[in-house]
């Protein structure tokens, strides 16, 4: 099993990303594509084992929100690290739609974006294959202060609502 970062710690990953042409396993924790969810939702929902879905920036978070009850995990795909759409998806899923399961960054996930990703509510990170996740752990501590309130533990009191 691959190792991922979850809640700032290295853990073995119990989830498996199922490709679209693979047969559904009975019991495994699997992550399927959004398209597969749309195509096979009944079978996936009836399976009785942990289910995750992977979306990228092109999927409307509001569509995902309607089905949230089925997902223990939502994987947010960063096809290239510069594609920042899923930062908005993460915030919307957490803040607007109240998703409390695991939000995982997958794809071109690099050390120097982890700080931002955690702040928008992503709590697990599958780093790009060639990177050592252990070396990336320090990224969460790059800053001890921030300006904005967001979804991480260090979010300050609203900076724009305080008197002198």
């Amino acid at each position: 099993m691959a190792r991922i970062i979850r809640d700032r710690a290295l853990v073995e990953d119990e989830w498996r990303r199922l490709s679209d042409d693979e047969t559904l396993p009975e019991a495994d924790a699997i992550i399927v594509s959004w398209q597969r969810w749309l195509d096979e939702r009944d079978a996936l929902a009836a399976r009785g084992a942990p289910l995750g879905v992977e979306i990228d920036g092109t999927v409307d978070a509001a569509d995902v929100a309607a089905d949230l009850e089925h997902f223990e995990l939502i994987a947010l795909a960063f096809p290239v690290f510069k594609d920042g759409r899923c930062y908005s998806h993460a915030r919307l899923l957490r803040e607007r739609y109240g998703f409390s399961g695991e939000l995982r960054a997958v794809g071109d996930v690099l050390r120097d974006q982890l700080f931002y990703m955690e702040r928008v509510g992503i709590d697990s990170f599958a780093l790009r294959d060639d990177l050592d996740p252990h070396q990336a752990l320090s990224a969460f501590e790059d800053f001890s202060v921030v300006y904005q309130r967001a979804l991480d533990a260090m979010s300050p009191q609203p900076r724009w609502r305080r008197a002198a």
Binding site: G84, Y87, Y147, Q148, W160
Partner: peptide
């Protein structure tokens, strides 16, 4: 105020 709000904005740093 905008400077502070936009500095390392977690959502809007990869526009």
């Amino acid at each position: 105020i905008l400077r502070q709000w936009s500095t390392f904005h977690p959502e809007f740093s990869y526009l």
